[in-house]
Design a protein around this nucleic acid. Structure first.
Lengths: 344, 344
DNA sequence: GCGCCAATCCAAAGCGCTTTGGAACAAAGA
DNA sequence: TCTTTGTTCCAAAGCGCTTTGGATTGGCGC
């Protein structure tokens, strides 16, 4: 028999289903010897309870939902996605949870979350890539589905649980670092600025400039999907300008690779003619050098963020009234070979 | 009421649960007018059937499982993962399926698949990253859990469903292309060769060399995780050799970026001093140039492979006896700027 | 008016589990 | 001896759905 159920297992043991169930789920009212017998039999006959039946009876799914908008697919095809998923997955699996991914058409987002709630396939939702105004927060609160946001939504006033990196601080610090090196024309090659993290990074950049009385130049600020091609294209354009930047702040290491390619193609040298600082999500397949970092970078592991945010969510599910949990991670500034004093 | 169930819906409509259920599931024995009434009510009250209960009653989960080994995590943190998931997800979502991801410790792999079968959380499994000898195939066949392999397992003799790219052919052709350009010392910077795709690529490379009577040089062949750093490190070492390669075959565009960095660092020029052909999975965040490809490449979209392999799996689930389905995708050879005649 | 056939609907069983409310029994207290 | 208490077990209800088998109705031919 390739699969057995509780009834068969209990018959095999000459016990009632109740007792077997209690033995398996650690209830106290069962003799230790009996419990051991049950556990041994379950293992040796490799019995696992049917999750659907168990879920139906308990109301729990032992699964966490992640929902991705199809238009938003860059979020998924982004290398960051894999590292993030690896992080959360680590937490889930050691807690015995599955992860349920679903894609949804943009205009059906709200309906999809309602459906998830009704279908009962998950115990909670991990919300990622929040925009500045993020309707999912109010919706999930209304539905009473536990959730944690990876990131924040600037325009949201209601309380909610989140884990975020201090993006503003990181980019402010990076900008300061470049200013200290004497750079004045500093470009920002940002991610999509309807994304909250990109918005915050821009704030950090702008406030550092402002603190030194430097006016921001719109021609030095771009915002788009963080691809390699974007880095190349926008850098090439900027370098061709009459007043080209001497330093560039980049939103992602992928984009920074395109930036580097553009700098080389323009016959310039990275770290001498043009300084570059990139945000580095500490991706395993694209790690930023070992002893000598290739890029000076604001580093914040998206993988460990995933581990932590998943822990928060599981805790929120276990003890729903542990209130909104909020945590901020600091990015560290890694000094690499891509920055140097401003050319005179 | 945030969520309603069938009973409430049917009371609301003054119909029996049976009729409502039949109306919703498209059975013929219900009046069209009644059906319309039911569907309208379901939509307006946003009713969705509870998936656990439905699954329990029907034996179907409407979900597909993807299992990743934790040691194997590079598979996940690999940028390819995101594109692949985006592809399969597209198919799943338009068929109304969810995707269930789980991580598993290496030594618990078999037990985990048994548990998945017993728990009944999924209707089928998508097996990815097969090794040359792949125990999962026999196991899943034994369990009677429908599955399709993305890739193949060379040493597996039993029939099973798969979708694969012609890796051997692609690398043979790429090698031929370099040989035609006059290159003789051609290096292979391969992926992990216990992975079946890497093994096959090596075969293609070797057979092209052999056809021209060129002996393979072990010092020109490496195998490792396909990171950027690996490309840099191994290329730097090879270029420092006394008889350095004039051309390099690379397993992934990520690794190729490291290769390019190493070539630049050695003061050489890509496409003139050293030619490079890389395999290109057509990743959205790392697309290989538009009009002018950066790298000459064997291109095969992992995203469309995902779409197709998911379709195959869903079909296999619907009609289990449509037998083992097997499909081969050809990679196209894209000529870019990274190759040129062998330097004399 | 009667019987018959479709068409339409319904009551109830069952999917595999948890959990409530007791039963059975032994040991302890009166 | 009888009640009480605690331990260990069980029968049965219930989770929300599908689906079997049957009931009800209306229309039709005779």
């Amino acid at each position: 028999m390739v699969t057995m159920n509780l009834k068969e297992l209990s018959q095999h043991l000459s016990l009632s289903q109740t007792t077997v169930s209690r033995a398996l789920n650690g209830y106290p009212e069962v003799n230790e010897a009996t419990r051991r017998r049950v556990l041994d039999a379950a293992r040796s006959l490799n019995y696992s309870p049917n999750a659907r039946a168990k879920g139906l009876a308990t109301g729990r799914a032992f699964a966490i939902g992640h929902v991705l908008k199809v238009s938003h697919k860059q979020e998924m095809v982004n290398p960051i996605f894999g590292d993030f998923i690896a992080g959360v997955g680590e937490t889930y699996s050691s807690a015995g949870y599955d992860m349920v991914l679903s894609l949804v058409e943009d205009d059906k987002e709200a309906a999809h979350y309602r459906k998830i709630k009704a279908r009962g396939t998950v115990d909670g939702i991990l919300v990622s890539a929040p925009r500045m105004v993020e309707p999912r927060i109010a919706l999930l609160n209304e539905l009473g589905l536990p959730f944690v946001v990876h990131g924040r939504a600037s325009e949201e006033t209601a309380p909610y649980s989140w884990l975020d990196t201090n993006n503003t601080g990181a980019f402010q610090r990076a900008t300061d670092f470049l200013l200290d090196l004497g750079h004045v024309r500093i470009a920002l090659i940002n991610g999509p600025e309807n994304m909250d993290f990109a918005h915050r990074r821009r704030l950090g950049y702008l406030s550092a400039l402002q603190a030194r009385g430097i006016a921001a130049d719109p021609r030095l600020m771009t915002s788009d999907e963080m691809t390699e091609a974007y880095g190349f294209r926008t850098t090439s354009e900027m370098l061709a300008q009459d007043r080209a930047p001497t330093a560039i702040l980049v939103a992602s290491i992928i984009t920074a690779i395109g930036v580097r390619r553009a700098i080389a193609a323009a016959g310039l040298e990275l770290g001498r003619d043009v300084s570059v600082i990139t945000h580095d999500d500490d991706l395993s397949s694209l790690n930023n050098g070992q002893e000598v970092p290739i890029f000076t970078a604001t580093r914040s592991s998206v993988r460990s963020a995933g581990i932590r945010v998943a822990e928060m969510l599981l805790q929120l599910i276990d003890t729903p009234d542990c209130g909104p949990m909020q945590e901020m991670l600091e990015a560290e500034l890694i000094i690499g070979a891509s920055t140097g004093p401003a050319p005179s």
